[in-house]
C-alpha cells in the first residue's frame, strides 16, 4: 500500500553559469543527482564536464545559479561541514615527494579532526578500512611517488574514502590507467555503491565503461546537458553522431547487456552512405 518514498535529491544544480575569468564554459545548466546512484558525466573534450564537477563540489564559484547539497546552498554551508558529507577527487592530483600512502590517506581525515585532537582511534580505523577497500594495505608505508599509476590512483581514492563521505565526486578516476586497472578501479567504485550505498558522480572518457558502470549517464556538449538517463536509452548512434561527431555502431555488450559503442573510422566508412543501421 505504502509507496516507496521518492528518491532523495542529494545534489541539485540550477541555472549554473560557470567559467574561468571571462570564458564561460557552462551556461544555464540544471542537474539533479539522486541518492544511491552512480552517475557518469560524458562528453567531448572541453565540454565542461570537469568544470561542472568542480562546481558541484564547491571548488568553483558559479557566475550565476546555485548548487544545493541536501537542500541547502552548498556555498553557504561551512566548508568543513560539507567535507564530512561530500568528497571530491580532482583529476590527476599530485602528492609531495616523500609522502607515504598512509600519510596521504590520513590527510583525508581532516574534516573530522579538531585542533586539540589531531588523531584518534576512529581515524586509525577509517584509514585502515580505506586502504583495505582499495587493496593497498600492504603499500601503506611506501612513498606515493614510488607507486605505479594504478596504485597511485588507489591511494588517492583511499584518501577520498577515508574522508568517510557518502557522496563522492570523481574526476576521471581512470586516467592514465591501462584497461585492467581501469576495470579494477571501476569495480571498486561499484562495490562502494552496492555494498556501502555511496552516491557517486564521476567524469569518464570511456563511453563503454561509463555505460557499463553508471546507472545514469549525463551527456554534455558545449557546456550544456544534451541528454541524460539510463545508458540503454541515452547511448544511440544518433547521439554519438550529434554529440561526439562520431560515426559509430551501437550493439549490446555481450557481457553486461549495456550499450557498446563501436566506432566506424575512415577506413571502414562506406562512401556516400550513412552508417548502415543493423
Amino acid at each position: 500500500m505504502t509507496e516507496p518514498p521518492p528518491p532523495q535529491v542529494r545534489l541539485h544544480a540550477e541555472g549554473l553559469r560557470l567559467g574561468y575569468d571571462d570564458t564561460i564554459v557552462v551556461d544555464g545548466l540544471d542537474l539533479d543527482v539522486l541518492d544511491g546512484t552512480i552517475t557518469a558525466v560524458i562528453g567531448p573534450n572541453g565540454c565542461g564536464k570537469s568544470t561542472l564537477l568542480r562546481a558541484l563540489g564547491r571548488l568553483l564559484r558559479p557566475h550565476a545559479g546555485r548548487v544545493l547539497l541536501d537542500g541547502a546552498e552548498i556555498r553557504r554551508r561551512p566548508t568543513r561541514e560539507v567535507a564530512r558529507v561530500l568528497g571530491i577527487l580532482p583529476q590527476s592530483p599530485q602528492a609531495p615527494d616523500g609522502l607515504t600512502v598512509a600519510d596521504l590517506v590520513a590527510r583525508g581525515r581532516h574534516p573530522t579532526q579538531h585542533w586539540y585532537q589531531q588523531w584518534s582511534s576512529d581515524d586509525e580505523a577509517a584509514v585502515d578500512e580505506a586502504l583495505r577497500l582499495t587493496g593497498i594495505l600492504d603499500l601503506a608505508e611506501r612513498g606515493v611517488d614510488e607507486l605505479s599509476g594504478g596504485q597511485r590512483q588507489r591511494a588517492w581514492l583511499s584518501m577520498a574514502l577515508a574522508q568517510g563521505t557518502d557522496l563522492l565526486l570523481l574526476d576521471e578516476p581512470t586516467t592514465f590507467l591501462d584497461l585492467a586497472h581501469q576495470v579494477d578501479v571501476l569495480d571498486l567504485i561499484e562495490r562502494l555503491h552496492t555494498e556501502l550505498g555511496r552516491t557517486v558522480v564521476m567524469v569518464l572518457h570511456d563511453l563503454n565503461l561509463a555505460a557499463r558502470y553508471a546507472g545514469r549517464l549525463v551527456v554534455m556538449r558545449e557546456g550544456r546537458i544534451v541528454a541524460q538517463g539510463p545508458p540503454s536509452e541515452v547511448i544511440t548512434e544518433r547521439l554519438l553522431a550529434e554529440v561526439f561527431d562520431l560515426e559509430a555502431r551501437v550493439i549490446t555488450d555481450p557481457v553486461a547487456g549495456t550499450p557498446l559503442v563501436i566506432p566506424v573510422g575512415s577506413k571502414h566508412r562506406t562512401e556516400g552512405s550513412p552508417v548502415p543501421v543493423v
Binding site: 580532482p90 592530483p93 599530485q94
Partner: peptide, 10 residues
Amino acid sequence: LGDDVARSLG
C-alpha cells in the same frame, strides 16, 4: 596536495 584537494577536505 593541491588547492582543489585542500578545499575538498574542508
